[in-house]
Structure formats: structure tokens, C-alpha cells
């Protein structure tokens, strides 16, 4: 038997309520494989509030505390404090929220937790809109995208909020982006985060076939092309915000190829696509420039 590429323990079981090809579910499966059984999840309102299952049944074999939409981070802070006061310093507490619960309604509480550097892993599984309520725009929705609240006649004109930068401004010990298309990388990042004390922020690109108007089998494909088209850079920020590492070792693919099978971008005209693609490239260049700049400051990453 060949050694498995990723841990074989399944803490997320079958029978859950996710849509076909759900990226958020794949993200959870990988994350739990990385984190193991000694983990407690705090889940606010988001797709995962439903995916978990219906009372009194849960598809996940570790403790979960479902909490209100805007409180994932701070409820996790509370859980961690509660555990530590019971003498449990080992259990990893994970806030597991969608992009709405992170970029929008949960931003304040997350900022609070990060500023205090409470010892939790905050995971944003980013499907780039309010998917659980039926595909409304969030501040994570990328420019050009259709949602039910940004109809094609008035698609989203503003770029996706740069949540990673916001988190970096909190000088927390670890920030990473990940994509469900790269399980080994994702698992490595979760394991790394688990070993670090303080607030860790991991933003996982989790395609939503339903909301992206994407055929479900292309879920992983999209998660991969988002990375190789530079739309969703894979990065790590360590040394309390002082060191940026961007993954560049991939064969670049085109923005156009990435959006082609996604119905949420179908309305875009050729010139609009080009315009957005330019924006993607300049964000990428900015990121690389920052990586270089930070690396050039002597003594910064020590």
C-alpha cells in the first residue's frame, strides 16, 4: 500500500448537507486531517452552519460550537480561555467562518481577537459571496462578478477587500492563504498554524459551484486556476507581519481561462475582462514588490 498523500483519519464524515462539489467541505476535510482530533471548532452563520447536519446529528467527529454570525473569532477566544482555565492548554480552537462572517460582519470581533493575539486559528473559507443565503455579494466578491445583489446590469464594480493586508496590520504571528486545490500545502499551513501560539489567520479559497455558476466537477479546477492565474496568490506572512512569502513556482495560466467556465463572469465583455486581468496582474506585481521590499530591510525578519 502506498503511503497516503494526506492523513487518512476522517473527522468529517459522509452524509453532510453540502452541495455537490462544495469547496468549503473539502477545505474542512483537509483542515481536520491537519489538525486532528484535539480540535474544537467554532462556526458562525455560514454554509457550514448547515453542512454540519441537523440536530441531533453532526457530520463532524470533533466538538463544534455554533455561534452567531459576527462572533466566530471572539467566541473562539472565549472557548480557548474557558479551556485554559480548566487546565487544557493542548486543544486547538478554530474559528471557521465564511467570507461574509470574516470580511464583513465578523471583522470587528476578528480584529479584537487578533489585536489581543488570542491563541486561536481563524479560518476564513472564502467562497466570495454570501452563499448560504443564496449568493449575495460580500466584500470578498471579486470585481466583475455577478451575484443576486449585483445583477449583470450592475455587476460588482469594486475590488475584493484585501483581508490579508488587514490581518497583517494586526501584527499577528501567522497569516496564510491556501486553496483546496493544493491539499498538501493547505495541510502544511494548518499544521504550522497549530504549532504557533497567538492568532493565526488562514484564508482558504473554497469554490462554490452553486454560487459561481460552475459545474461541480470543476470545483478543484477553479481553485487551482485561481492560483495559477494569480487571482488568488498563495502566501504566508510570518514574523508578526514582517516577512512575506509568495508562492511563485507554478506555470502561469490566463485570467480568461479561469473565469471562462464560471457563469458569474459570463456577462463580461472582452474589454472588461482585459481591464480586470490588468488589475490582477498589478496586484500580483504589488505583492511581489512588497515581498522584495520587506526582505530588503535588514533585521526585519528576525
Amino acid at each position: 500500500m502506498r503511503e497516503a498523500r494526506i492523513p487518512t483519519e476522517e473527522l468529517m464524515g459522509s452524509g453532510h448537507l453540502a452541495c455537490q462539489g462544495c469547496g468549503a467541505t473539502i477545505a474542512m476535510r483537509f483542515a481536520l486531517k491537519a489538525l486532528g482530533r484535539e480540535t474544537i471548532l467554532v462556526i458562525p452563520a455560514c454554509c457550514w452552519a448547515v453542512i454540519d447536519g441537523t440536530f441531533p446529528h453532526s457530520a463532524v467527529d470533533i466538538p463544534i460550537f455554533h455561534t452567531a454570525f459576527e462572533t466566530a473569532a471572539v467566541t473562539a477566544s472565549g472557548v480557548k480561555a474557558g479551556l485554559e482555565m480548566r487546565g487544557d492548554f493542548e486543544t486547538t480552537v478554530v474559528a471557521w467562518a465564511g467570507d461574509g462572517g470574516t470580511f464583513d460582519i465578523g471583522l470587528q470581533a476578528l480584529s479584537g481577537t487578533a489585536e489581543r493575539n488570542d491563541d486561536i486559528i481563524y479560518v476564513c473559507y472564502d467562497n466570495e459571496a454570501y452563499m448560504n443565503t443564496g449568493i449575495q455579494r460580500s466584500s470578498s466578491t471579486p470585481v466583475g462578478s455577478w451575484t443576486t445583489t449585483t445583477p449583470v446590469t450592475n455587476y460588482k464594480k469594486r475590488p475584493k477587500k484585501n483581508m490579508v493586508d488587514i490581518m497583517a496590520a494586526h501584527a499577528i504571528p501567522y497569516i496564510a492563504t491556501a486553496s483546496v486545490a493544493y491539499p498538501e500545502d493547505l495541510i502544511r499551513k494548518f499544521k504550522k498554524a497549530k504549532a504557533i501560539k497567538g492568532t493565526k489567520y488562514i484564508q482558504v479559497l473554497a469554490p462554490c459551484p452553486t454560487g459561481w455558476k460552475l459545474s461541480p466537477e470543476l470545483s478543484i479546477w477553479a481553485a487551482r486556476k485561481a492560483v495559477t492565474s494569480k487571482v488568488y496568490p498563495m502566501l504566508e506572512i510570518t514574523e508578526n507581519g514582517n516577512k512575506l512569502t509568495v508562492w511563485k513556482d507554478f506555470e502561469p495560466t490566463s485570467f480568461k481561462e479561469y473565469i471562462k467556465p464560471q457563469g458569474r463572469f459570463r456577462h463580461l465583455k472582452e474589454n472588461e475582462i482585459e481591464e480586470i486581468a490588468k488589475g490582477v496582474e498589478s496586484s500580483w506585481q504589488r505583492l511581489l514588490a512588497r515581498e522584495k521590499m520587506l526582505a530588503s530591510i535588514p533585521g526585519l525578519d528576525t
Partner: peptide, 30 residues
């Protein structure tokens, strides 16, 4: 690895699809 429904069973020398739970998303095929 990629099955969102944890419906693929990894055996010693092969895989088996648990059709009780496979939602037919076809990520595995893709």
C-alpha cells in the same frame, strides 16, 4: 483526496466509491 463527501474509500491497492453517499459531483473524474 478531493472527494467533498468523503465517499471514496482508500483500500490497500484500490479505491472504492461509497455510492450511498457519493453525490455525483464528479470532482474525482475531473
Amino acid at each position: 483526496v478531493y472527494c467533498p463527501d468523503a465517499a471514496i474509500v482508500r483500500k490497500d491497492d484500490r479505491y472504492e466509491i461509497d455510492y450511498d453517499y457519493c453525490k455525483g459531483c464528479l470532482v474525482c473524474v475531473e
